[in-house]
Write a protein that binds this DNA or RNA. Sequence first.
DNA 1: GCATGATCATGC
DNA 2: GCATGATCATGC
Length: 495
Amino acid sequence: MKELPYDKTDAYSIEGYAKKLLDKSLRDVLKDLYDLELKIKAKGSLGQTTEKYYFLYENNSKSEPDFPEAGVELKTTPVITDNKVQLKAKERLVFNIINYEQEVRREFIDSSFWTKNKLLLLMFYLHEKDEIDIDLVFKLIRLFRFPAVDLKIIKDDWEKIKSKIIAGKAHELSEGDTFYLGACTKGANNTPTRKQPFSNELAKQRAYSLKPKYLNVIIQKTLKGEHDLIDQTDDYRRILENNIVADPLAKYSKVKKDGSLSPVVKHLDDFENQTIEQVIVSKFDRYLNKTAEQIFEELGKDPNKKAKNYYDRLTKTILGVNVESDIEEFEKAEITIKTIRLKENDLPKEDISFPAFKFEGIINEHWDESAFKEILEHKFLFVFFQFIDDRLVLRKVKFWNMPYKDILEAEKVWIKTRELIRNGEIVKEIKKGRRSTYFPNKSYNSVAHVRPHARNIEDTYPLPTPDKLTGVTNYTKYCFWLNSQYVREEIYRKF
DNA sequence: GCATGATCATGC
DNA sequence: GCATGATCATGC
């Protein structure tokens, strides 16, 4: 047996050896180090190839980490560049598949997720569309462990996923259910095939995952020299309510402040035995039924009322975060904030719009990978104000993500829309110069409808099929909207 | 008064 | 210049 080029019991040794791949491809390094010519042409297996030919161990899909003696799990994941400048994650980081039957019998500390993924060796490589795996270049390599505050949130996320399985709703799991640790679908076809313990309904196969923006924060902090590997033994013990072994990484560098992000929760103590959701919502409690002006006055601030970011500032000020920064928890969990102004009958003054879709794009999408479903599976923070005479008072603040049954409703609107675009059935009639279309309206569906969303009538996207009635090949930009009635009944008025 | 068509404003 | 969030205007 050949001697390993690193100490398999030492995470730092593994990391140091891994870093020899920085700015190089696997093929380059293996040729330089070992005069080994790889002839592998396969795609989609960079992680496995790296394990086998660089770290010289056989792939396993066991529940233990890839380097069991050091407790390190290897993850290769693609990054892309923003205008050749900034690195950002191309996709989620996907962990182990959730075995619904087994996971519910465990506690977090012995869960499949925590057993395997306590300490990660992250290897970010630059995605190139036409390159084969072993020629891809690694750009960022580091050990990573979850900061204690994040681990607390992740543990709560795990409990949420477990409780949904216990409720017999594994088939209704959604990434919007949780903050950081998601349950994303995994597998070539998305048909439900996996058994779940408390329902006869088959569920889609899902794996634990981190959202791309969570990875972006890791990338940005790493580029700034932060490592988040300071001694967290005591904090970890508090979270896990269990003794854990002495921290092998206790000696690492200090965390620096990140100027572009501002966390709501800075220390474990700030949770006060609440979830992140409870912490955030409760910060609004004392301002309920007050006007925005009153709230700002109490907070000792007086921003420009006409400014477009007036309500954004209000939310940030209440949460006690830097108004010039993004809210760290919201960024990493990809939470969308929607400020809604209700009329006196609780009906939102406006429907809620989303970004315009491209007609040519939507016809080639499948629902499960569609941009619209992606949006709907996010978590939202709704901040409801209500008009009393002509003053707006804060009424309710709640986190929300769309229930499974309503996602199925939204799917009908999307399918209908795609079909109309494919067939070129856009314009129904033109009366007094105003066009009406066949797109699904409010009476078609209780959840969502389709309406224009453009700078003006000239602001168009190309049609894949010319419109049958008018023959035009471009049409005003459209988008999906959430019906105001839906927002009132299912988001504002529900519990 | 509401549904639908149309457009504005800001920030990157 | 465009994407995105927000809002206005018209006709039934």
